[in-house]
Each structure stands twice: as structure tokens, then as C-alpha cells.
Amino acid sequence: MSRLIRKGLDTLGKALRETGQALDRTGMEALGSDKHKELWSRHRQVSNLFDQRPRVASNAFVSPSATVIGEVSLWDKVSIWYGAVIRGDRNSVKIGNCTNVQDHAVICTVPSLDSGFPATVDIGNLVTIGHSATITSATIEDKALVGIGSIVSEGALVETGAQLAAGSVVPPGGRIPAGELWGGNPVKFIRKLEDEEVLANVAAAEAYHALAQSHENEFLPFGAAYLDAEKVKVSK
């Protein structure tokens, strides 16, 4: 199915839904009922954008107030926290195993880069993206940590095990070498990281996965007991 046809069907579907809701409101008013005035949320955590469809692993956690839209891939044990936005509308976004994107972080893309490099977002495994951080068409390698409120600009590269201090700004095309701590606006080298500090990045990512599981259980419609029952069945 072509993208144009898909877009037309999407527009038609929305028009039919809105028409149905208008008729429902009119009917309620005719019956003297105020039920149609009750507030409810139409927010969808994971949304298609025409022919661009998110792919979410079965054990990934997307919080009720997060937004994942378009060409986005969330691998095993990923957690997307409250108010975070992942937009794969202009290019693809990939987030690797056991990576966490914390509250109000924004990950988005641009159509292309003058450098000629891919304008996608590629985030590796066991990465922590801090609260309110912004990442645009950049690459974050395994075991890295992007501090709270940091900005990683177009074409930037944060290498394996590197850390960005809170509030750091990595300019377009910037590179943060592996195993180093950088910070400031614009970002500057601070010091080399100890091996234990890189391992702490891994521990933090794993801890967020465990925390995400406890949050996810709260949002299951009938509790989590049936999941334990399934595990017992598989083990027999």
C-alpha cells in the first residue's frame, strides 16, 4: 500500500471517529445525560505515523504518559519513563537492550545531515538517558550515560562507557571519547573515568530495568500473577 493511500485511509478513519463521537454527544444530550462531559484521556503511548510503525519488544516498558511514534525500535528490557517523547517521524530511532530513557527526555531526528552521515538516532545497550535530556540524530554507544538536562546535537557521537555531566551541551558533530567524563556548555573534557565508574553505568541501567518491572505491574489490567503462572508452565 502506497504512503499516499495510507495517509488517505488514516484521514478517513479519523473523520469517521470524530463523527461518531459527535453523534454520541448529541444522543447523550437528547437523553438528558451528562456522561459525555466526563474527562478522559485519548493519549496513546505507541502510535503509527502513516506507514511508519514502532517495534516494541514484549518486555519493554513504555509508561502511560510517554509517547513513542513512527519508525522507532525498542529492544529487550528498554524502559521509557513518564513524559518522555521518542519521535521517529523524519528518520529512524533505535534503542538497545536494557537502556532507559528517563522522565521528560526527548529523542528526535532531522531529515538529513550536511556531513553525509545517517541522520538516525542509534542508542546502544545499557545506556542511561537522564531526565529532560535531548538527543537529536546522534549516536550513543553501549554503557554510556547522558546526564540530566544534557543536549546531544545532530551528528554527535558519545562513545562506549562515556559520561556527560548534568546540563552538558554537545555541539553538532561533537565526539565524546570512550571512558571519559565531559561536561559544560559547550562540553569540555573533565577527566578519565575509572573502570568502576563505567561498571556503575551498567549497574544503573540494570537497576532501572528492575524498577520499570515494578511500575509495569501496576498498569497491568489484572495484576501480574498470570505472568508467574506462565513461567511455571514453561518450566514444566
Rank of each mutant, 00 (worst) to 15 (best):
L49S: 13
L49A: 14
F50A: 13
A57G: 03
A57N: 10
A57Q: 04
N59I: 08
F61C: 01
F61H: 11
V62I: 13
S63I: 05
P64M: 11
P64W: 13
P64V: 11
S65T: 15
S65L: 04
A66N: 03
T67M: 10
T67R: 10
T67Y: 02
V68A: 03
I69A: 11
G70Y: 01
E71D: 15
E71G: 07
S73K: 14
S73P: 00
L74V: 05
L74M: 05
W75H: 13
D76A: 13
V78I: 07
V78C: 10
S79L: 00
I80G: 02
Y82H: 14
G83D: 10
G83A: 04
G83R: 11
A84V: 02
V85Q: 08
I86C: 07
I86E: 07
I86F: 03
R87S: 12
R87T: 07
G88P: 06
G88Y: 07
D89L: 12
D89F: 05
S92Y: 12
S92N: 08
G96K: 06
G96Q: 01
N97D: 14
N97W: 12
C98E: 10
C98A: 15
T99V: 04
Q102V: 09
Q102H: 08
D103W: 04
D103I: 05
A105R: 03
A105G: 08
V106W: 02
I107M: 08
I107N: 02
I107Q: 02
I107K: 04
C108R: 13
C108Y: 14
